[in-house]
Design a protein around this nucleic acid. Structure first.
Lengths: 227, 227
DNA sequence: GAAAGGCGTAAAGAGTCCATAAAGAGAGTG
DNA sequence: CACTCTCTTTATGGACTCTTTACGCCTTTC
């Protein structure tokens, strides 16, 4: 399961920027718009990380931070418009883990989120499985499921399938695939590719002789069906 | 004893400012002026925190950071004149804990040092027992109970079990596990892992030859059952 | 219509990985 | 010092993967 992040801010436009951004990076995001509901949400949802704006309408952000710290050891990343040194010192000393001043770069914030989660020992956000017409490719579990049945693939087969499925509809040349799977030294050995394609089709195609997923583009390469 | 801090910077006037400052606040400070001696000093002195300038004469600061991370988990606070977002992201993603751009306020730096040391010192985040299908792993008491019977594990066995059980369902590669349990120097010695897995299965699996908890993902790694 | 070469499949051999047993090294204890 | 426990290291058998080769079929080219 992906890490849960609680974002606390009273400005709607920050919330509506930050929450979707974090979601697209694979995190599960919940939000709060004031101190009281933030503290409640922490108790209730047990997030893996908290992004907390200091300028809240009801309670001072520093007090929110302190209140959370008294009950949980979840990492807290402070967001603030005030860049004065005393503000930073105060927040960090009551238990905040990091302090970022607005305006901030999105990638920097994400990197600091990753750093904080890494320290707290949370697993990196899950990479979503690839789903294509009855075929589920789970990179995290090295698993492929076709119409409910699990298919066992070897590492090379799996690597090839992922590479093809990542570019559905697009024709990938022999050269491109060989370079991706076997490295640049193998670009002139297409027999490797033919054999591996055969093995893969045998396992994932309902009728290997008339492929449904992995289509041959004669004289050029192969193509993953995009239906 | 006071926390030991290693300060790495090639500018003498930063060193002569920072080191005395940290000493007056009660830290034990050692210094290094280039990447090579920094890495040596880390191995030798085992500091509790490292303040690392990115602009070193011999090795890129990011590489120093990465090299230290490979062998130790000591907190690293990056100091840099470059404030570009990509620099920050790069440093944080190779394992740095914080990133401060010059010029910086002394009190802010000290507060970030305190925050990093506090985190490193904090007891392993409230570790509630892991419970999975008849298996109870109590990290605080260092005990494992299976179906009511207590199982005695050695430290390495316990560490491995916890690491696997923390990521149920997910396939952890040999490399990942080796790095986590034995350190980065052991990533190419999978025989360690095989033997330890065998010992662990013998103790916790009802039928060690057909494992129920620790599943082999051939050619890739191992996976803790999640059902 | 014939030659050349790509494509799919099968099969053999080399190499690699897994599980297990067991011996040796090292630390801690009485 | 002897004993115990843990960890490392090595050896072995069995299973599997990957590479390589071979051959029949098909498409393209001339």
């Amino acid at each position: 399961m992906p890490p849960k992040i609680l974002v606390v801010d009273d400005e709607p436009n920050i919330l509506s920027t930050l929450a979707p951004l974090l979601r697209t990076r694979g995190y599960e995001v919940s939000t709060a718009m004031n101190g009281r509901s933030a503290i409640e949400a922490v108790e209730h949802e047990k997030p893996d990380l908290i992004v907390l704006d200091l300028g809240l309408p009801d309670i001072d952000g520093v007090d929110v931070c302190r209140a959370i710290r008294e009950t949980m050891s979840v990492p807290i990343l402070i967001l603030s418009a005030r860049g004065a040194e005393t503000d930073k010192v105060r927040a960090l000393d009551v238990g905040a883990d990091d302090y970022v001043t607005k305006p901030f770069g999105a990638e920097e914030l994400l990197a600091r989120v990753r750093a904080a989660l890494r320290r707290a020992d949370a697993p990196p956000p899950a990479s979503e499985p690839i789903v294509r017409a009855g075929l589920v490719i789970d990179r995290e579990r090295f698993r492929v499921v076709r119409d409910g049945d699990e298919v066992r693939l070897t590492p090379k087969e799996f690597e090839l399938l992922v590479f093809l499925a990542q570019h559905p509809g697009r024709v990938l040349t022999h050269r491109t695939i060989l370079k991706a799977i076997w490295g640049a030294n193998a670009v002139d050995q297409p027999e490797h590719l033919r054999v591996l394609i055969g093995a893969l089709r045998k396992k994932i195609e309902p009728i290997p002789s008339t492929p449904k997923y992995i289509l041959t583009e004669p004289w050029v390469g192969y193509r993953f069906a995009d239906d």
